[in-house]
């Protein structure tokens, strides 16, 4: 959105979000250390460090992966999504402590380089149960490292939102790798049903949330369209709430039709920032505002207000007997279309 890049655009909400993350992370570490010292007085500081950071990072990853589908199921959760990247980077920092310390602890000061040792000590790559589980964790860490390194909008724009989103979808691969890192690693010794059960509950929760969210949006995406003279039915006029939109999906492209100040306008449903669903946004101060990160566009021409330069496709609309129709052929990005008055 900004024309030049600043480290991070701090604002009150972000600061509150980050403060909450830091406090909760510290709370977890204090509790983990406290409970363990109480229950296991012979635990070593190294084991405490490795296990507290491992479990905290895994817990954070579960929260991170739950936020997306939760926001799709109930848009009231969107504030959690807004700064999700901060949670991701925090998780990366915690995981870094775990990874760096584990590599030092288990692989350094030996007769080969620590990284060679990581890959070459356990050579049972052909076995499932004896697979070198540390390697799984390391690959997951590389993915998270790449994500954290490219988390800033500078990278989002330079890699294009498409490449960036694909790269960041690798977090699902990282998640699977981490689950197996735990199952083929520490769980092979710490086989308490309590620990295995907790991990299973976490995994099933994440999977269920994603499937429910996917099912919900899939239904909306595959609704059959009613076509009339090249125009596609969107919604009854009265069903669109003021300053809000209805979305129609035609041949994999979504169009958002907004109702505001007695007028109707249609734009492409994908925000230029991260492909956020503009149709779930709202008109604020006369501008379409993206629900994800608040990027704004003027509804009549799809242009971001000055000095920003993002532009959306716009679409022709038609109103007939209280029914709204859209022409699915997009106008070039930023094309002004006179809003359709209905009053």
């Amino acid at each position: 959105m900004s024309v030049k890049y600043v480290g991070v655009l701090w604002n009150k909400q972000k600061k509150r979000y980050d403060k909450t993350i830091a406090l909760l992370a510290i709370l977890y570490l204090v509790l983990f250390v406290g409970f363990n010292v109480l229950l296991h007085p012979t635990i070593s500081p190294e084991a405490l460090l490795v296990r507290s950071t491992a479990t905290l990072a895994l817990l954070m990853l579960h929260v991170i992966l739950a936020i997306g589908p939760m926001a799709r199921i109930n848009t009231k959760f969107l504030p959690l999504l807004y700064n999700r990247r901060h949670l991701g980077v925090s998780m990366f920092l915690v995981a870094t402590i775990h990874v760096v310390f584990s590599i030092i602890q288990f692989h350094s000061l030996g007769n080969v380089n620590a990284f060679v040792s990581l890959f070459a000590s356990n050579t049972h790559y052909d076995s499932f149960v004896n697979f070198p589980f540390q390697v799984l964790g390391f690959y997951a860490f590389i993915i998270i490292l790449l994500m954290a390194a490219t988390s800033h909008d500078f990278w989002l724009n330079n890699l294009s939102p498409k490449v960036w989103k694909s790269l960041h979808m690798l977090v699902y691969v990282a998640y699977a790798l981490i689950i197996m890192h735990v199952m083929l690693g520490v769980i092979q010794l710490e086989k308490s049903p309590l620990l295995i059960g907790m991990l299973a509950v976490g995994m099933l929760t994440i999977i269920t949330l994603h499937l429910v969210a996917a099912y919900k949006t899939h239904r909306a995406d595959t609704k059959e369209n009613i076509e009339e003279e090249g125009f596609v039915f969107v919604s009854n006029l009265e069903d669109i709430k003021p300053n809000r939109a209805k979305v129609v999906t035609i041949a994999n492209e979504s169009i958002a039709v907004f109702k505001y100040e007695g007028k109707l306008s249609a734009v492409h449903n994908a925000c230029k920032h991260q492909n956020g669903p503009l149709g779930e946004g709202k008109i604020i101060d006369g501008c379409i505002t993206c629900p994800w990160h608040g990027y704004q566009y003027k509804p009549n021409d799809g242009c971001a207000p000055e000095p920003f330069t993002e532009k959306l496709h716009t679409y022709d609309l038609r109103l007939k007997e209280g029914k709204v129709y859209v022409n699915p052929n997009p106008k070039p990005e930023g094309t002004h279309i006179e809003p359709l008055s209905y009053e």
Binding site: L24, L31, H40, T55, L80, E190, L194, L195
Partner: peptide, 30 residues
């Protein structure tokens, strides 16, 4: 919206206490 976020944070706080405690209990000992 802020009410829901606040409620979410409280749930996470309870989750944190539970997870830290249960992991400590679940370990085989040292």
């Amino acid at each position: 919206i802020s009410k829901l976020s606040r409620r979410f944070v409280w749930h996470i706080t309870i989750l944190i206490v539970l997870v830290a405690g249960l992991i400590a209990i679940g370990q085989r000992g040292f």
